[in-house]
Design a protein around this nucleic acid. Structure first.
Length: 502
RNA sequence: GCCAAGGUGGCAGAGUCCGGCCGAACGCAGCGGCCUGCAGAGCCGCCCACCGCCGGUUCAAAUCCGGCCCUUGGCUCCA
């Protein structure tokens, strides 16, 4: 079965066929860097990352471009706040650095480029000029607007009638527009205090002051700034050409952002802008969504600190990218259990493979079959519109197969070396597609911690041998309080250091 | 109001496109057994679902068609 994806444009699941059978042009609508990234962003990033990884896994070269919108009044509104920066560019830079650090901590593959709006103003101006020449755009008081009535397919992505959209717009808002739904390609002048005031946080510079720091550029229409929407068209065309294969972004961007991207891009080039539009669903917390504007978010760095990368990625891929996901203590705890189960089985298999009970001749057909079935299930799941939930389920079945083999094999017959080795490789390889890493704590601190734990367990063994179970249990409880999991087995005690500690 | 997504066990969440293997996956919680000094982990087994409601098509429907109810998201900055 080949990869199928759900295309928002058609509303259907379609076979995935990139223009060039070997390369995929992927554009992800990145952040406006005006707030610290939160878990909702992480969810989309991780899903795009998994798409990227899977596409490579099945043999494509992926050209993945992800923008930073570093020109925005919300950024200006942050000027002077805390240590964020003294002007628009500074604040943007602060958040870009923070965002990249968060991405790294989530074990995301790097994009090919992270273009910024501020670097692409000439391309934006060119694009706007083209649109004007072709009659899709008009100038009004130094601003330039896209005339939605000129673009026949306007509303196709969000499946709305232009008439309906027009009736939503506020007719008085900008009298300089021809139609209420027209959108700005270029905005005259800088940023006004009113726009800043709307987004200003406590501690930020007064709106009048921060406005002074907003960047502006010369254009054929005078001094001004690019509108929202046009930057994505300009940047994706610059780095990936006129037609993308995959355009991914949050569900909340379908309208107006992506609708407008299509309009301005296709009007300018007469080419299809993107073949497949994929939209990541949003988090839901109790009865509202998680979002920057509602302020009800958990930042990525907090989450990584608290849960660790593997647990977090298990959580974020616990549902398909295009399904809303519930954020709650329970759903995160459940993801942690899943990850722990995987990791324990993995570690048990690695221990067994290196143990004297290993046999080169033993063969457990059930184990081997379960592993190969799991590989097939995983592949089918990922090919079916990146169904990460099903993919996790396949991974878990490898864990069960490992545990069962270790449980049911007694020392005299020996463990199935080849079978276990295959299971380990499968977990590593498929886990990697989800960005999960089984590589344990190998750094100095972890080794030292391990040595200390072993010392404590050694003491505890003496207590146990002496029959002082009370003291022994106390030690075990104390270790557990530190997050160290102790298990007594026939071969002596084993332990696991807290995960997310790598 | 318009557009979109969704309503499946105690929770969470697949399956719905391509009807039958679904008396419904995986996991969590719960119960019983094995193992264990105990606990945990693990293994085995069990419990809990007339798949929102009503009607239709079909030999056969969670899956297709029609109607209705409810939830969430978009329509304003937002992944």
């Amino acid at each position: 079965m080949t990869l199928h994806v759900t295309n928002t444009l058609t509303g259907e699941k379609e076979p995935f066929e990139p223009q060039d059978p070997e390369n995929v042009l992927l554009y992800y609508c990145g952040l406006t860097v005006s707030d610290p990234p939160h878990l909702g962003h992480a969810r989309s990033w991780v899903h795009v990352d998994v798409m990227h990884r899977w596409l490579e896994h099945i043999g494509y070269d992926v050209r993945h471009v992800e923008n930073f919108t570093d020109i925005n009044e919300k950024i200006v509104a942050r000027v002077g706040e805390d240590e964020l920066g003294e002007d628009e560019a500074d604040v943007a830079e602060t958040y870009i650095e923070r965002t990249l650090a968060d991405m790294r901590s989530l074990n995301l593959l790097r994009a090919e480029v992270y273009p910024r709006v501020s670097e692409h103003v000439p391309e934006i101006v060119d694009l706007v000029e083209t649109l004007m020449e072709k009659g899709y755009a008009y100038e009004s008081n130094g601003s330039v607007y896209f005339d939605v009535t000129e673009f026949d397919e306007y509303g196709a992505l969000s499946n709305q009638d232009l008439e309906e959209i027009e009736s939503q717009g506020d007719p008085d808002e900008r009298s300089e527009k021809h139609n209420p739904a027209d959108f700005a390609l270029w905005k005259a002048d800088g940023v006004g205090p009113d726009a800043v005031e709307e987004h200003r946080h406590e501690g930020a510079a007064p709106a009048e002051e921060s406005c002074e720091t907003a960047l502006t550029w010369d254009s054929p229409w005078g001094e001004g700034r690019p509108g929202w929407h046009i930057e994505c068209s300009a940047m994706s065309m610059t780095h990936l050409g006129e037609t993308l294969d995959l355009h991914v972004g949050g569900r909340d961007l379908v309208f107006p952002h992506h609708e407008n991207e299509i309009a301005q891009s296709e009007a300018a080039t007469d080419q299809r802008f993107a073949k497949y539009w994929l939209h990541c669903e949003l988090f839901q917390m109790d009865d509202e969504k998680m979002s920057s504007s509602l302020g009800n978010f958990v930042t990525v760095d907090q989450a990584v600190d608290q849960w660790g990368t593997n647990v977090l990625r298990t959580f974020l891929t616990a549902g398909a990218y295009n399904n809303v996901q519930l954020y709650s203590d329970e759903t995160i705890a459940e993801a942690e259990e899943r990850w722990d189960r995987l990791e324990r089985a993995y570690e048990a298999a690695v221990d067994a493979v290196d143990s004297p009970e290993m046999s080169a001749k033993a063969a457990d057909d059930d184990l081997r079959e379960a592993v190969s079935d799991a590989r097939e299930e995983f592949t089918a799941a990922m090919n079916d519109d990146f169904n990460t939930r099903e993919a996790q389920s396949a991974l878990l079945s490898v864990a069960t197969a490992i545990n069962r083999h270790l449980e049911e094999t007694d020392a005299s017959e020996g463990y199935d070396y080849r079978g276990l080795r295959r299971a380990i490789e499968t977990l590593e390889e498929l886990g990697d597609v989800l960005g999960l890493s089984f590589e344990g704590d190998t750094d100095g601190t972890a080794t030292l911690a391990g040595d200390v734990v072993e010392l404590v367990l050694d003491v505890r063994e003496h207590e146990r041998e002496a029959g002082d179970y009370e003291r022994a249990d106390e030690l075990r409880d104390e270790l557990e309080a530190l997050g160290i999991e102790v298990q007594d087995t026939d071969e002596g005690p084993t332990y696991r250091l807290p995960s997310g500690d790598e």
